[in-house]
Design a protein around this nucleic acid. Structure first.
Length: 817
RNA sequence: GCCCGGAUGGCGGAAUGGCAGACGCGGCGGCCUCAAAAGCCGUUGUCCGAGAGGGCGUGCGGGUUCGAGUCCCGCUCCGGGCACCA
């Protein structure tokens, strides 16, 4: 047989997989459905190694599950709205659509060269008019359901670019990634989605997900549930005016020595008294203009900035007056924007109290020698009716007290904020509303959808959205009164697009709604979702929210509330110690490797180089390992198509026992590879295949029964098929004229997994001294006797008396002196 | 600061509390060849030893156990996430 020509064979097999329908599935497929999905990519050009790694893992699962008899849904699409395309246009390049579609073509080509199989009939792109239409239908439904709303919010504004930036575009030093200008906070009218309505459910449901613990922890922190009490306090001498505070430590209320309002709190202006205006105004002004970065910097947490309003409120627990301060360490966006300050039990309050000379009253006695805030448990002191209770009991009693007074209650707050989806950008899905001077916000009627982006636009070097200057787009008529109206020029955050595409994939050409309920019921949830850890919070949280919002509005199946049953996050590729990414310009293009060693070798590299969850450092050794993978595939090819000459006259006795040994090795390998794929240990699965290859080669050179060798080679090709799909397909076809990818996945014969004789380790005082062959079902006593009979063990004992033996047959016996 | 991960040969990495280093990369030796490439075979933790063999070895210090890379306690270093959220 000729040498394997991967250049020719890979192209041929890829065309065949595209045409033969093996990886197309439909609703009437009798096989059980299984949904494998890799996070759909932003099309940035030809695939980089991170994509290759992601799609290789996904493809292994698709092919493996297909061989196991599932109807595997494996769709592919593009997250094709986004900033780089628009930035390219601003720099004088092509129109974002032209640019994006060129990048999609490039990425599609590399994905196909990898030999990853998809049901391409289902391809979708978020910039397609069809997807835009359903995106807009969803938005309007969320608006109708009260889950979308418009409100004023502080945003990141870049004065150089004349636009709002996404958080990701603001660098760590608070400057714009593109212009380098210092980003400002501005209050603008923005669209929000009410994700906070689902905070509790999003948090609670995490427990039942088969996701990496790390990701679940990050989501829990992000949602940030905190349980406490909320209550109102009267302001001294100001009847009718109260401040409301939230605390997680109502048990410490007797230690309240002051109260604090956030600078943005509406009562600040009301409560400030003569002589305090200037100081308070200055503080508020400074807080307002400070960037988030400045306000939250670690240095800022040490020097707390505040001012006294001149007013006092009444602590309802002991009727004492406490001064009301304004301080920038209290945030308007959390809780009530006002706190009771207990310096003795809160570090931040402690720092502020020290800086401003405020009293500190402990309500829990800290351990001896302890100075500073003590947030730990202990019995209450200085706390009136709470004295002597522990923290938990005191919390309960304090809430009860507030409830009896009718001024407060138990309350749960979440750190999670509503999702701001407005982007002052062109290349995104238009928000389908208009503004009428008489009717205000008017949704675009369903029959007028989609609202598409006009193509004839001018990209300004300032970065201002071209939609704001496009008269034909801007001017419209009110859907209610027919009077003049202007369209919303903001577009949606691209995370909106990616929050439901996995539902659309179930039937992407459905004309009746965004999600085909029947198809979604059939395929959802995604059984196996694969992507980078970078999306641990945003995308994965938004998708969970959307799935619920669609279920509740009837746009999605109501029983599908979680989108992804199992999540796998693969490690990053690093080059020179940094994440490999196109924006950092440190990429190693897979295209060169496709040409040099072929797709199968590159796939094998990613599978074999280490645990899939771990990061990979791309260096000289990586290339050498790739060479090794390429060599290995050559060995498999030769073994399968041109096996070595055997000795002419093998001894019959040997042949029988050698055959059994080989068959045992084959079935052990089947068991290992199957289990390893299921636990994402692709590196050890490949290692097991390589071990088997070595074993078969050894047998092939000796006199082992030819039929057993051939059978072993077939199984090896089947086990390798998900990893190296082209070469195994070619070899299998050569051998049998059959398609390895439609073969059933091999099943290990348990009778061959349990061996009659095993090697038992003999230890003396925990050190291995001998290895002896024993029967698998040897008794404890017989094992111990065999161990004591070992000459090597006896030598190690050197005549010392045996105190006892620990026998764990048939693996090990430990002799203790 | 808080919360997670991690640390094993020269390197990437294997090891349900039971043979540490599977499988590779690199190195070394050999076969093939006029020669080279490719390919094939062998060897490769470390120290002592001619050898047989033995000592030591999973970041550091303790502990549990007949037995610890694995479990527990206390550190060191590295990586990541969160970071005034009351």
């Amino acid at each position: 047989m000729a040498e394997y020509d991967f250049r020719e064979a890979e192209v041929r097999w890829q065309r065949r997989w595209d045409e033969d329908g093996t990886y197309r599935v439909d609703l009437d497929d009798p096989r059980p459905p299984y949904y494998v999905l890799c996070m759909y990519p932003y099309p940035s050009g030809p695939a980089h190694q991170g994509h290759i790694r992601n799609y290789t893992f996904g493809d292994v699962l698709v092919r493996h599950r297909t061989m196991q008899g599932h109807a595997v849904l494996s769709p592919f699409g593009f997250d094709s709205f986004g900033l780089p395309a628009e930035n390219a246009a601003i720099k004088g390049g092509d129109h974002p659509r032209v640019y994006t579609e060129a990048r999609i073509a490039e990425l599609t080509a590399s994905v196909k060269r990898l030999g990853a199989v998809y049901d391409w009939r289902r391809e979708l792109r978020s910039h397609d008019p069809d997807y835009i239409r359903w995106n807009q239908v969803i938005f309007l439904e969320l608006l109708r359901a009260g889950l979308a709303y418009r409100a004023e919010a502080p945003v990141n504004w870049c004065p150089g670019c004349h636009t709002v930036l996404a958080n990701e575009q603001v660098l760590a030093d608070g400057t714009c990634e593109r212009s380098g200008d210092v980003v400002e906070r501005r209050n603008l009218e923005q669209w929000f989605l009410r994700i906070t309505q689902y905070a509790e459910e999003l948090l609670d449901a995490l427990d039942g997900l088969d996701w990496p613990e790390r990701v679940k922890t990050m989501q829990r922190n992000w949602i940030g549930r905190s349980e406490g009490a909320q209550f109102r306090m009267a302001v001294s001498g100001r009847p009718g005016i109260e401040i409301e505070v939230f605390t997680t430590r109502p048990d410490t209320s007797f230690g309240m020595t002051y109260a604090v309002l956030a600078p943005e709190h509406p009562l600040v202006a009301v409560l400030v008294t003569d002589g305090h205006e200037d100081e308070v105004a200055e503080l508020c002004a400074r807080a307002k203009q400070a960037t988030d970065i400045e306000r939250q910097s670690s240095e800022g947490s040490l020097e707390k900035r505040g001012a006294f309003t001149g007013s006092y409120c009444v602590n309802p627990f002991n009727d004492e007056l406490v001064p009301i301060y304004v301080a920038d360490y209290v945030l308007m966006g959390y809780g009530t924007g006002a706190i009771m300050a207990v310096p003795a039990e809160d570090e931040r309050d402690f720092a502020f109290a020290e800086a401003y000379g405020l009293p500190i009253v402990r309500t829990v006695e800290p351990p001896g020698g302890f100075t500073g805030a003590y947030p730990g448990d202990g019995l209450k002191i200085n706390s009136g009716f709470l004295d002597g209770l522990d923290v938990t009991a005191a919390k309960r009693a304090a809430v009860e007290f507030l409830e009896n007074l009718g001024i407060g209650s138990r309350k749960i707050h979440y750190r999670l904020r509503d999702w701001l989806i407005s982007r002052q950008r062109y290349w995104g899905c238009p928000i389908p509303v208009m503004y009428c001077s008489t009717h205000g916000i008017v949704p675009v009627p369903a029959e007028d959808l989609p609202v598409l982006l006009p193509d004839d636009v001018e990209f300004r070097p300032t970065g201002e959205s071209p939609l704001r200057f496009h008269e034909a787009f801007l001017r419209t008529t009110c859907a209610i009164c027919g009077g003049p109206a202007v369209r919303e020029t903001d577009t949606m955050d691209t995370f909106v697009d990616s929050s439901w595409y996995f539902l659309r994939f179930c039937n992407p050409r459905d004309e009746t709604g965004p999600v085909d309920l029947g198809a979604a019921r059939h395929f959802m949830p995604v059984d196996q979702y694969i992507g980078g850890i970078t999306h641990a919070i945003l995308h994965l949280l938004y998708a969970r929210f959307f799935t619920r919002a669609l279920a509740d509005t009837g746009l999605g199946p109501k029983e599908v509330r979680e989108p992804f049953s199992q999540l796998f996050c693969q490690g990053m590729i690093r080059l020179g110690g940094r994440a490999m990414s196109k924006s950092k310009g440190n990429v190693v293009s897979p295209d060169d490797y496709f040409a040099k060693v072929g797709a199968d070798a590159l796939r094998l590299l990613h599978l074999f180089i280490g645990p899939p969850v771990d990061d990979v450092d791309w260096n000289e050794q990586t290339e050498e390992i790739l060479e090794g993978c390429s060599r290995y595939l050559g060995r498999v090819w030769r073994l399968a198509t041109d096996p070595p000459e055997q000795p002419v006259d093998p001894a019959q006795d040997d042949t029988a026992s050698e055959s059994l040994l080989l068959r045992r090795a084959v079935h052990h390998t089947i068991a290992r590879v199957t289990a390893d794929i299921e636990r994402y240990a692709f590196n050890t699965a490949v290692a097991a295949c390589r071990e088997l290859t070595n074993t078969i080669s050894r047998h092939a050179r000796s006199g082992t029964d030819r039929a057993v060798i051939e059978e072993s080679i077939d199984t090896l090709l089947e086990l390798l098929a998900p990893f190296a799909p082209h070469l195994t397909a070619e070899a299998y076809e050569f051998r049998h004229g059959d398609n390895v990818h439609t073969r059933p996945w091999p099943v290990a014969d348990v009778r061959l997994l349990t061996e009659q004789n095993v090697t038992m380790v003999v230890q003396v005082n925990g050190k291995v001294r001998d290895r002896i062959e024993v029967e698998r079902d040897i008794s404890e006593q017989a094992a111990a006797e065999a161990a004591l009979a070992s000459p090597k063990a006896r030598a190690a004992l050197g005549g010392a008396a045996v105190a006892r033996t620990i026998a764990k047959p048939p693996r090990l016996v430990n002799i203790i002196t």
